[in-house]
């Protein structure tokens, strides 16, 4: 469907309705119950959530690893939660970039191979491949010589930046980032945040940044707390 740039701006890129999720075996205690939530395209959003309040579960639902018990998740105007497992995997490969808190890379593959892994699963014909990788690496202020090195030979800060490159290589519309700076020191953290925001902006990705650390919220225009979305009574697990 072709939409004008204007209306595309106003479309919610993430839309949640009547979402409910409980882990199998504990259906009496749902972890998440979100009646309504929208994230608009192009937003850079800080989602505040301490560990154990369903933050990880929400992210797994948004990336399609988990399926809601009831309710609906729409991503990019598609009924994401209604797709089959295989379809969700493919959607994730093409439209969602994920950065974990740590261990984002396959340790025994090289940096380049780690990024190529993401390209492989999106299965879109890429003619530019290597040049795009080089550009991203440069944007993230990493030396080109890193590409041939084994991923586990990099410092944590470098690994996290490579993780961003890997998450963005397929130009995903959505970037989900989970506490990526918890293993970084204060300086590295600042530099990382600046890079993340700049690169995701230049890629036109909607950024969903999740963290328990409120101090990082200063980098963002919008802040939401998970507690305000989730109607399940708070239990610190």
């Amino acid at each position: 469907m072709v939409q004008s740039a204007m209306s595309a701006q106003l479309q919610p890129i993430i839309e949640i309705n009547d979402l409910s999720f409980a882990y199998p075996g504990r259906t009496q205690q749902p972890v998440l119950q979100i009646p309504q939530w929208q994230v608009m395209a192009g937003q850079q959003l800080f989602l505040h959530g301490p560990s154990g309040c369903g933050k990880s579960t929400l992210l797994n639902l948004l990336t399609g690893i988990l399926c809601p018990g009831s309710g609906r998740i729409r991503l990019l105007n598609e009924n994401f939660s209604g797709l089959s497992g295989r379809q969700r995997d493919r959607f994730r490969a093409r439209h969602i970039g994920v950065v974990f808190q740590q261990f984002n890379l396959i340790p025994y593959l090289s940096v380049a191979e780690n990024i190529q892994l993401a390209v492989h699963f999106s299965s879109i014909q890429r003619s530019f491949g290597d040049s795009k990788i080089a550009t991203l690496i440069e944007q993230l202020q990493l030396p080109k010589s890193l590409l041939a090195q084994r991923a586990d030979s990099l410092s944590v800060g470098q690994q996290q930046r490579v993780a961003i490159a890997r998450a963005l290589i397929n130009e995903p519309e959505i970037l989900v980032v989970d506490e990526p700076t918890s293993a970084l020191d204060a300086d590295a953290c600042e530099a990382f945040m600046a890079l993340l925001l700049a690169v995701s902006r230049s890629n036109n990705s909607t950024l969903l940044f999740v963290s328990h650390d409120f101090r990082l919220a200063q980098h963002f225009d919008e802040t939401v707390s998970l507690a305000s979305l989730n109607t399940v009574a708070n239990n610190a697990v």
Partner: peptide, 14 residues
């Protein structure tokens, strides 16, 4: 476990 999580994150199926 982490390796598998990374693979899943980039779109690998089970």
């Amino acid at each position: 476990n982490r390796e598998i999580a990374v693979l899943r994150a980039v779109g690998a199926s089970p």
